[in-house]
Computed example of a mutant assay.
Amino acid sequence: MLGGVQHSAAGAGPPIVVMGVSGSGKSTVGAALARRLRVPFADADALHPPANIAKMRAGEPLTDEDRHPWLDAVGEWLAEHSDGGVMSCSALKRTYRDQLRARCAPIRFVHLSGSPELIERRHVSRPGHFMPTALLTSQFDTLEPLGPDERGVVIDVSGTVEAVVETVLARSGMTDRSPHPNS
Rank of each mutant, 00 (worst) to 15 (best):
A163T: 11
R121Y: 03
G128V: 01
G152I: 06
L143I: 09
V157L: 05
S125T: 14
Q139G: 12
G159R: 13
L135K: 05
E144D: 13
V157D: 03
H129F: 02
L136C: 07
I155S: 01
A163C: 07
P148A: 15
Q139T: 09
V161W: 03
E144A: 12
R151F: 09
L143A: 14
D156L: 07
E144Y: 11
P148W: 12
R126Q: 09
L136D: 05
G128T: 02
D156F: 12
D149G: 10
S158R: 14
E144T: 14
G159C: 09
R126G: 05
A163S: 14
H129M: 02
R126F: 06
E144I: 10
L136G: 08
I155K: 01
V164H: 03
V154D: 11
P148R: 13
L143F: 15
S138D: 09
R121I: 04
L146R: 10
P145F: 11
R126P: 07
V165K: 00
R151M: 09
R126D: 01
V165I: 01
D141K: 13
L143C: 12
I155A: 03
S158P: 10
L143Q: 12
L143P: 10
H129E: 00
I155N: 03
E144V: 13
V154L: 10
F130T: 01
E144P: 10
D141E: 15
E162M: 12
F140E: 04
P148I: 12
T133R: 06
G159E: 05
P132M: 01
R151E: 15
I155G: 02
E150F: 08
Q139F: 13
L136W: 05
V154I: 14
L136N: 06
V157E: 05
T142N: 12
I155M: 02
F140Y: 12
R121S: 11
V154Q: 11
M131P: 03
Q139L: 11
V157T: 15
P145Q: 09
S158G: 15
T133Y: 00
G159D: 07
A163N: 12
V154F: 07
E150K: 06
V153Y: 04
R151P: 14
